[in-house]
């Protein structure tokens, strides 16, 4: 199988995967399982500085980049949160910074996951997306200074 290469195509394949579940429990279980497969963050990033504010559970985000290729590692002490992060990162990781900055991430609605989230969890996810875009913008800015 050829790996999907854009945010849009990766999101599309996730939406298709989730369409297989008609039961919310199976969907939740899958989210939890995806969280368990998340690549662990380096201990150096498990700090207050790298914590996402606005989450009821604790979430840490570690940015990684090589040139304009950007990806993230993340962790949370709550499993559903961790699963949602895994979904988000599966779509966003290894994208070009400009693609991340332009993405609208509407696939979260299509997964029908956002409606299951409590307002605080929704705020937490929004805060995480905002932080990811901030990192991408910083890389974009330093890249344009260099060139």
């Amino acid at each position: 199988m050829t790996a999907p290469t854009t945010i849009l195509s990766r999101a599309q394949s996730l939406v298709e995967e989730f369409e297989l579940f008609d039961d919310w429990m199976d969907k939740y279980q899958y989210v939890i399982d995806l969280g368990k497969e998340l690549e662990p963050i380096d201990d150096a990033f498990r700090t207050e500085t790298h914590k996402i504010q606005g989450c009821q559970s604790q979430v840490w985000l570690q940015p990684c980049s090589q040139g304009r290729d950007i990806w993230f590692k993340a962790d949370s002490d709550a499993q559903i949160t961790k699963g949602l992060i895994a979904i988000l990162l599966r779509v966003l990781n290894h994208s070009d910074v400009s693609e991340i900055l332009q993405s609208e991430l509407s696939f979260l609605e299509e997964l029908e996951l956002k409606e299951h989230l409590s307002p605080t969890r929704k705020n937490g996810l929004d805060a995480m997306i905002k932080q990811i875009k901030l990192y991408a913008a910083a890389i974009q800015a330093s890249d344009s200074i260099r060139s």
């Binding site: 919310w24 709550a78 559903i80 299951h116 989230l117 409590s118 969890r121």
Partner: peptide
């Protein structure tokens, strides 16, 4: 070892309102 938040989210799906945190 479950996070209270996870438990509360699942209880909500069963129509049960509790507080977590």
């Amino acid at each position: 070892k479950s996070h209270p938040y996870d438990v509360g989210s699942i209880l909500d799906r069963f129509g049960i309102a509790v507080r977590t945190g």
